[in-house]
């Protein structure tokens, strides 16, 4: 099972992520995180369900694509197909900063200990780790640095305005 880190602890995941391959299957029960294409096609069906809804963006799908429909979503997930594909960091900053998304923002895909501190700073608050990763070590990495220079979602005031 992939492991979820949320609110600074390792926790059970009550969301089900529908992959792009599964998009044509009948919808499973429960809280779903669906691919953007599926949401575009079947928005009314998805909203009529009795559950909270999440959408996931691939690394080439900018958040502006869902900017005007964010109020319908309890969760947005961003895929990191490789940890070196850093587009998701900017997407997170835009979602939180400019589009004011206040729901859960989840990183999944090639997510690991060495990236999570930066992810947290950009506004992610949950992380779905691949099977082989150690969630406890990853959790510790969320506090790799006790302070930082620049403004980001976790600390909008840059150091120079705080320490001056």
């Amino acid at each position: 099972m992939p492991k979820l880190i949320k609110e600074n602890q390792v926790t059970e995941d009550d969301w089900l992520l529908v992959s792009a391959d599964e998009a044509n299957n009948p919808l499973p029960e429960g809280k779903l995180i669906v691919p953007l294409e599926l949401w575009n096609e079947r928005q009314s069906v998805l909203l009529a369900r009795d559950h909270e809804l999440g959408v996931w963006l691939d690394s080439n799908q900018a958040p502006e694509l869902i900017g005007d429909r964010l109020s319908e979503l309890a969760l947005v997930a961003i895929n990191f197909p490789a940890f070196t594909d850093g587009r998701g960091y900017s997407y997170a900053q835009v979602l939180r900063g400019r589009l004011n998304f206040a729901g859960e923002l989840r990183a999944f895909g090639d997510v690991g200990k060495d990236q999570m501190f930066f992810m947290k700073r950009c506004g992610f608050d949950s992380y779905l780790l691949p099977d082989e990763k150690d969630p406890i070590a990853a959790l510790q990495a969320l506090s790799s640095f006790s302070d930082t220079y620049q403004s980001a979602q976790d600390q909008p005031i840059p150091a120079f305005r705080r320490n001056g």
């Binding site: 940890f83 070196t84 594909d85 850093g86 960091y89 900017s90 900053q93 990236q115 501190f117 930066f118 992810m119 947290k120 700073r121 950009c122 640095f145 930082t148 220079y149 620049q150 980001a152 840059p158 150091a159 120079f160």
Partner: peptide, 13 residues
């Protein structure tokens, strides 16, 4: 230098 050091958004350009 300070701004770019460990900038969280631009570590994987």
């Amino acid at each position: 230098r300070q701004w770019s050091t460990l900038h969280p958004e631009f570590a994987y350009l």
